[in-house]
């Protein structure tokens, strides 16, 4: 990172070579720029430090953490936290280390998490895109009123929906299934509809009209024109949805009863709320947290460029 944080010098090179938009005042290394970079470095440090601290804690021995709190490196370095997460320690060993003592069927939970997050993401993004298209491009009566109603859904407190939805899932016989966890958010969220509608509004009308003139149906226009043209915002939304679905804890906890529907966050939640009598198993907890976030972090590292670049507004006004 240190090599990357010195571009003030690099930008002094002729701007012609650069393909990025021209940086402002490239020849002056003034006070403002130093201040700005200091600020950015601070932002970067604050953003990343907690991740380092998770790793440091996860690699420490839990019983030693309380006594060695001022050490910047792992205290009594141990893979115990991770071993407990992966269920490699026996129950008694884990409890002795201040852990939960429950076997963790990691690959099963990972698989469940992937299924649930994928179901939610695919369903929600696709159905929301359809609705967003209807709100942005189709002409029908009461369109704006219905849209306003949808938007108001953004404001519904979660407390309203939790219990009725749980009872409904039970009545549908979907308790303890992956579909049961996914169902409530598989159809839409007001945010997704709102988000995509804004983009669809910005797509040039001429292209669409031309296609319609050529005799294409609106359905065809949606699938062959609108969707491909909105890859960037749809990717963005899909990623946001996937992150949210992956991190969902409380609802998944309610619906899941056994290993067959247990997702990663719930499985690792056993580390979170131990009995009130014992202090948290910080090293196991932080290891669990890292493990739960790892698939996301890997995915993010692989696609960082795409993800980051795809977050864009082609034409919100």
């Amino acid at each position: 990172m240190t090599t990357d944080t010195t571009p003030p010098v690099a930008t002094a090179l002729p701007t012609l070579i650069r393909r990025e938009p021209a940086p402002p005042e490239p020849h002056r290394l003034n006070f403002g720029r130093v201040l700005a970079w200091t600020f950015m470095i601070l932002v970067i440090l604050v953003s990343l430090f907690p991740f380092y601290w998770m790793l440091r804690t996860a690699l420490s021995s839990n019983n030693a953490l309380y006594a060695g709190s001022d050490n910047l490196l792992p205290v009594q370095t141990s893979g115990g936290g991770f071993e407990r997460v992966f269920g490699l320690q026996t129950g008694q060993e884990a409890i002795d280390a201040g852990g939960a003592g429950q076997a963790i069927n990691f690959w099963r939970y990972l698989f469940n998490s992937v299924v649930v997050s994928t179901l939610i993401t695919v369903g929600q993004v696709f159905f929301s895109a359809m609705a967003a298209y209807a709100f942005a491009r189709l002409q029908w009566r009461h369109r704006e009123k219905v849209f306003a109603f949808f938007l108001a859904g953004l404001m519904i407190p979660a407390i309203f929906t939790l219990l009725p939805n749980f009872v409904l899932i039970k009545q549908l016989g979907l308790v303890d299934t992956l579909l049961g966890i996914a169902l409530p958010t598989m159809f839409m969220t007001p945010f997704a509809v709102f988000f995509l509608r804004q983009f669809f509004l910005g797509i040039s009308r001429e292209v669409e009209e031309a296609a319609l003139m050529d005799g294409a149906s609106k359905v065809r226009v949606f699938f062959r024109l609108i969707l491909p043209m909105s890859v960037a915002p749809i990717t963005t939304l899909a990623i946001l949805t996937y992150i949210a679905a992956w991190n969902e804890y409380f609802w998944a906890l309610m619906v899941s009863y056994t290993d067959k529907s247990r997702v990663l966050t719930v499985a690792l939640g056993v580390f979170k709320s131990q009995t009130p009598q014992t202090g948290p198993d910080w090293s196991g907890l932080m290891a669990a947290t890292l493990v739960a976030a790892l698939p996301m972090l890997l995915l993010f590292m692989l696609f960082a460029k795409r993800i980051v670049n795809s977050i864009g507004f082609s034409g919100i006004k």
Partner: peptide, 17 residues
């Protein structure tokens, strides 16, 4: 086009509300 979203909206948001 809005039917699937409407179902989800009605069942999992409006009705509980």
């Amino acid at each position: 086009f809005i039917l699937p979203a409407l179902i989800g909206f009605g069942v999992f948001l409006v009705w509980p509300t």
